[in-house]
Nucleic acid binder design. Sequence first.
DNA 1: AAGAGTCGCAACCGCACTCAC
DNA 2: AGTGAGTGCGGTTGCGACTCT
Length: 259
Amino acid sequence: MGRSPCCEKAHTNKGAWTKEEDDRLIAYIRAHGEGCWRSLPKAAGLLRCGKSCRLRWINYLRPDLKRGNFSEEEDELIIKLHGLLGNKWSLIAGRLPGRTDNEIKNYWNTHIRRKLMNRGIDPATHRPLGEASHDVTTTISFGGAKEEKEKISNPNGFIHKEEKKIPVQEKCPDLNLDLRISPPLHQTTQPEPLKTGGRTLCFICSLGVKNSKDCTCSIGSSAGSSSSSSSSGSSNSSTGYDFLGLNSGLLDYRSLEMK
DNA sequence: AAGAGTCGCAACCGCACTCAC
DNA sequence: AGTGAGTGCGGTTGCGACTCT
């Protein structure tokens, strides 16, 4: 159908932001809040594209951003999450307070990739370099949703916004973007569901999906309980849900098995 | 000292998704 | 149901800073 450009390119500044532009943007958002990025530049007196304003705010000006070096713990968490989620930088960023998807993406490409290579691990597959990927694993395919539909029965689709993005068609068959969650090497049977305090976390819930009809546990599902059940059983104060159980220690990322 | 090469990060681009109409 | 505006996301690029020769 064709898309209209997000802004009038002829009359917009590009490139690095000046201090004055930053100040204008901060002042405007403080006064009016985020949102309506298309009209924001005009309203704020900025000769910038709305998308550019949004990016600048989210990646640089937001007051809750944690600037500075990544800690060793953050490094490891990023590696683990990347192993589970792939290049879903926004999801990964959601688990690292004060970090942005762009920052993590850059950090991955410049530091962690090299770090993994030095460890002899392929950063794309999280497997030892040169190892063929043909052992027993549970596959979450971001490329072949048809196959996955059968593995994880999902007749109605996930409710969680991010999960709805799991592609429905394989766009590039030559490119294997499969993510694999594997049992520990010594395990040959299906991994036990995650447990904490006598409660069991199903796979769907472990991925942070709220209120999924596919939930087979009692924590994240609303199919058989009210929405308050998820928040009451979690420790994430902002979202009411503990993605991957990392906050609660339910699933310690240090113990996530990566193959 | 200076030019070449490399690195790291901010910003841009284009596609995909959601939602209102 | 179709369309378009608004927004979000991931990949890529540009450029300044730094290192090497």
